[in-house]
């Protein structure tokens, strides 16, 4: 069962999503944690769970998947940690300010199922550090793997609105299909 805004409304799904971000926040002693899921058709990332700063306001908000750190993580499947964000004139500051919270550091890992990235798990302002930054990156990546398996169950149960991770052609498949059509057209054009 999904709400019009695309968010899980049944208690089990809500609890699972919320527990992922709550535990991530607790592991890192962070100010906030979020799960974004990729809306492939709109090519947008959608806030599906938030713990801490922004918890009341961010659910359902969307932003372009082709930009920003979360966008890079979803595009590449690589986790990363960025620090000293106050020295970055950009860092999606407009976005961060619109969400009501501007972090100093950000840790992000992909949510992967099979060979596809379907979302991002983010942690804002982890502190104080009890482990090195690379250890934090690895720990979040490992936790994201577990979270991805659980989230996949939620998605498959309800096929959340706006999160089309199965069925139809994904962008890579569409690109391949277009390339094939293009090649066939050229072949037909040149073979007469």
């Amino acid at each position: 069962m999904a709400a019009p805004g695309g968010l899980a409304v049944d208690s089990l799904s809500r609890e699972l999503l919320q527990s992922v971000v709550d535990v991530a926040r607790a592991i890192f002693g962070a100010q906030a944690s979020s799960v974004f899921l990729l809306d492939v058709e709109a090519y947008e990332l959608v806030f599906h769970a938030v713990s801490g700063q922004g918890q009341r306001t961010l659910l359902g908000q969307r932003f372009p998947a082709g930009s920003g750190i979360a966008g890079w993580v979803v595009a590449t499947g690589e986790p990363m940690l960025v620090d000293d964000l106050t020295h970055s004139a950009a860092f999606d500051r407009a976005l961060a300010e619109s969400t009501g919270y501007v972090p100093q550091s950000l840790l992000a890992a992909p949510l992967i199922q099979g060979d596809r990235v379907f979302g991002v798990l983010e942690v804002l302002d982890p502190s104080p550090r009890s482990r090195s930054n690379l250890e934090s990156v690895d720990l979040l990546a490992l936790f994201a793997r577990q979270a991805a398996a659980a989230l996949r169950i939620v998605i498959e149960r309800h096929q959340l609105d706006g999160v089309r991770t199965s069925g139809g052609l994904d962008p890579d498949d569409r690109a391949s299909a277009r390339q094939l059509m293009y090649s066939l057209q050229r072949l037909l054009d040149t073979s007469v």
Binding site: E78, P79, M80, L81, V82, D83, D84, L85, H87, S88, A89, A90, F91, N133, L134, S136, V137
Partner: peptide, 8 residues
Amino acid sequence: GGTIRASG
């Protein structure tokens, strides 16, 4: 023109 520190 900004800078950050990052790990990965």
